[in-house]
């Protein structure tokens, strides 16, 4: 097969932009799954929830979708903290976690999806914003703003989180809770509180990623399933709990998907992430930048 140059360039640029967005989608899972060992399969469901909150604010009062979710992120943080509390009381405290907690999050995902379906129906929803529509052109390569803006904000978010994790006391505690809970307790920090904060953060990032999602493409409630594979693929490929790894893996996935969609057709794109996931699990379970 012949690859025309401008098509190739466009595919690469679109892939990198998509990758920036995937980083925002997966960074929360890198925190909950990678650092806290909480297998939150419902992560994509919270992304969709964020998307619909952005949709509501946009259609009723005309608010910018991204600004809306950033402003409302404390509410999502609280939601995440509450879910962690239930998780802690029913699974971590009792000791037998893995199988039932998986089912717990699977159920949460299902409840969120069906509730959104009951409220909003199966129609695809879109938002209005100034940066949706126009596109910059750099010598034959299109740079659609609806992808570019989320990509920039997303990278800013990941960098900010990384700085928070490395420079602040709470952030360092989150990194420590992933390594040794008892040692953390000896340092005078309450691991449950730290984990609650971290899980709250992960849900807040998911909601912000939801605003990106609805700027990039129309959203309907069951679209979240397509993201289960992506978030876990990025999380595992990047190396569990490594934010730079998450960013790198997200860009790799974005480019791979963009290539597949450009040269083989969009209907094959969902298989890309799971292909990457299965390959990583089989060949290098520690991921690219894993410990």
């Amino acid at each position: 097969m012949e690859f025309p140059l401008d098509l190739l360039l466009n595919a690469i640029v679109a892939g990198i932009l998509l990758g920036g967005f995937y980083a925002a989608v997966s960074v929360g899972l890198s925190i909950s799954f990678g650092m806290l060992d909480i297998v939150n399969i419902a992560h994509p469901a919270f992304i969709i929830l964020g998307a619909f909150v952005a949709y509501l604010a946009n259609t009723t009062i005309g608010a910018d979708p991204i600004v809306t979710t950033v402003v409302l992120s404390p509410a999502f943080f609280a939601l995440g903290a509450a879910i962690y509390q239930v998780y802690y009381l029913s699974f971590e405290k009792r000791g037998h976690e893995s199988l039932r907690s998986l089912a717990f999050f699977f159920g949460l995902m299902f409840i969120t999806e069906v509730s959104l379906l009951l409220v909003f129906g199966v129609d695809y929803r879109t938002v209005q914003a100034a940066y949706i529509g126009p596109s910059l052109a750099l010598g034959g390569v299109g740079l659609p703003l609806r992808l570019f803006v989320p990509c920039l904000v997303s990278i800013a978010m990941v960098v900010l989180l990384q700085v928070f994790l490395q420079k602040t006391f709470t952030g360092r505690c989150i990194l420590a809770v992933a390594q040794n809970q008892v040692a953390l307790q000896l340092m005078g920090a309450d691991p449950i509180r730290i984990r609650r904060i971290a899980f709250g953060l992960s849900i807040a990032t998911a909601a912000i990623a939801g605003a990106f999602l609805i700027t990039i493409q129309p959203v309907e409630p069951s679209i979240g399933r397509d993201y289960i594979g992506r978030v876990f693929a990025v999380c595992v490929l990047g190396g569990m709990g490594s934010l730079p790894g998450t960013l790198l893996a997200a860009v790799i996935l974005g480019v791979a998907e963009s290539f597949t969609a450009t040269f083989y057709g969009p209907s094959w794109a969902p298989a890309v992430s799971f292909g990457i996931l299965l390959l990583t699990l089989a060949c290098r379970p520690a991921g690219l930048l894993g410990r």
Partner: peptide
């Protein structure tokens, strides 16, 4: 990881 892989298999 097994659980996630089975989910992946279904989507593939």
């Amino acid at each position: 990881f097994f659980a996630i892989a089975t989910l992946a298999m279904a989507i593939v």
